[in-house]
Design a protein around this nucleic acid. Structure first.
Length: 422
RNA sequence: GGAGAGGUGACCGAGUAGGCCGAAGGUGCUCGCCUGCUAAGCGAGUGUACGGAUAAACCCGUACCCAGGGUUCAAAUCCCUGCCUCUCCGCCA
């Protein structure tokens, strides 16, 4: 959520910022609601003040044994009035909040302006495309031939966009999870957490998935819980409603979780292979940062995520998303795109974002600055990395002419010393 | 699932015959004093949010003692519902 006072005082600035990302909101409506709301606050508070004063007087009269019935009678009418304006206020506040909750974050000034992913800027490239003296295959062909990925049976068990991993395929997935967790914990200083895989509505609203994107989420029957679409949701909400110590910042967590997404808007897109699944594994990095240096923290987070691919020695590039391609809550995002020779494309494998105080305001995550003032922290997160997509990348980049797959050095300790999947 | 107990400020912990309780006391923390070190000691201060006022702060008001309802002129204190925690039993990975 953008600071309501910011909107109130700098409506043009906010409008200009949102315009850059093709977004807008009904400024007139919001201003009206805000004014109405504040007017009603003042009205009810004045009435309540009167009531409180009167209550004390009644108490005193009672104590001295005097008659207070006249004042009590008046109190009754005051109570009714308070009830009425209170109702009005409640409605006004709900409407006001409803508008605020669906306004996206403002892009940071450093974000390239653009309308679609075509305007994203490649900011760095690491390694290079490996040479092949044969036609490299896509991972779905490799996986089925090796009998380590079974899409048909997964469809039988559940439906489309699910995968059954088998034998060394399952081991590879597990190895990557452990490899990434170890790397981030031991070398990058993150604290490992294993959060709940379902969360309540408040948590989903805190990070910005709700109220706007409910159709993307799997919701449970009987309880108002959702399957998490990313570990960002439970992990960011770890500190919801808390006041952190300034000296503890930044707080860095890494979490492995499965992720569940309906992919409602992606009918017919990426239907083959591991690319786009309703359930996939991910190792996620989350930071709670001091607002003064959150964008430096973003650069660090990006490096931590990149390190995974560097250790696996797989070519990738990094794009700065343009304003038009930013996610709802994000102020700035880098995508890491891994090279997939079997499909001849770069594919997003990580998305690292700084949300400034947008999520912190919704989830009420604050810290106390030197001198005692509370202030919102900045939240950040990034995939470190998406596991399924890393499996794709390993398979396609490390494939051999005979359809076997060489296991990257860094991964071998996690795969019982195995050198090849065959 | 059955039977009990409980949810108060950063933490511990008072507060049941409803009113002057945002809430005693302690710990922690901050500032100052004192002690040639460490420890101890002394004094003062120390919740959050919203609204108003302000250049800003002190300031004024309202709300909050798990959440939501109810009773009452008035509720942390009484009633109802829900959530959560703990103990015992059952069940279970």
């Amino acid at each position: 959520m953008i600071d309501p006072k910011m909107i109130r005082d700098n409506i043009e600035v906010v409008n200009a910022g949102l315009a850059k990302r093709q977004a807008s909101f009904d400024a007139g409506k919001l201003v009206d609601l805000d004014e109405k709301r504040r007017r009603l606050i003042q009205e009810t508070e004045k009435l309540k003040n009167e009531k409180n004063t009167l209550s004390n007087e009644i108490a005193k009269l009672r104590k001295s044994g005097a008659d207070a019935s006249e004042k009590i009678e008046y109190q009754r009418s005051l109570g009714r009035k308070i009830e009425e304006t209170g109702q009005e206020l409640k409605t006004a506040e709900e409407e006001w909040e409803q508008v605020l909750l669906v306004i996206p974050n403002m892009p940071d000034a450093s974000v390239p302006v653009g309308t679609s992913d075509e305007d994203n800027k490649v900011v760095k490239t690491w390694g290079e495309k490996p040479p092949f003296d044969f036609e490299p295959k896509a991972h779905w062909d490799l996986g089925e031939n090796l009998d380590i990925l079974d899409f048909k049976r997964a469809a039988k068990i559940t439906g489309s966009r699910f995968t059954l991993y088998k034998s060394q395929g399952a081991l590879l997935e597990r190895a990557l999870i452990n490899f990434m967790l170890d790397l981030h914990v031991r070398e990058h200083g993150y604290i490992e957490v294993l959060p709940p895989f379902m969360v309540n509505r408040t948590s989903m609203t805190g990070t910005g998935q709700l109220p706007k994107f409910e159709e993307e989420l799997f919701h449970l029957e009987g309880v108002d819980y959702f399957l998490i679409p990313t570990a960002e949701v439970p992990v960011t909400n770890i500190h919801a409603d808390e006041i952190l110590k300034e000296e503890d910042l930044p707080i860095k967590y890494v979490a492995y979780t499965p992720c569940f997404r309906k992919e409602a808007g992606a009918h017919g897109k990426d239907t083959r292979g591991l690319t786009r699944q309703h359930q996939f594994n991910k190792v996620e990095l989350v930071k709670f940062s001091h607002p003064d240096n959150s964008f430096e923290e973003l650069e660090g987070l990006l490096l931590d995520a990149e390190d995974v691919l560097q250790k696996l020695n797989i070519h990738y590039r990094v794009s700065a998303l343009c304003t038009g391609d930013l996610g709802f809550s994000s102020a700035k995002t880098y995508d890491i795109e891994v090279w997939l020779p079997g499909q001849n494309i770069y594919r997003e494998i990580s998305s690292c974002s700084c949300f400034t105080d947008f999520q912190a305001r919704r989830a009420k995550i604050r810290f106390r600055r030197q001198g005692g003032k509370t202030e919102l922290v900045h939240t950040l997160n990034g995939s470190g990395l998406a596991i399924g997509r890393t499996v794709m990348a390993v398979m396609e980049n490390y494939q051999n002419p005979d359809g076997t797959i060489t296991i990257p050095e860094a991964l071998r300790p996690y795969m019982h010393g195995m050198e090849t999947i065959k």
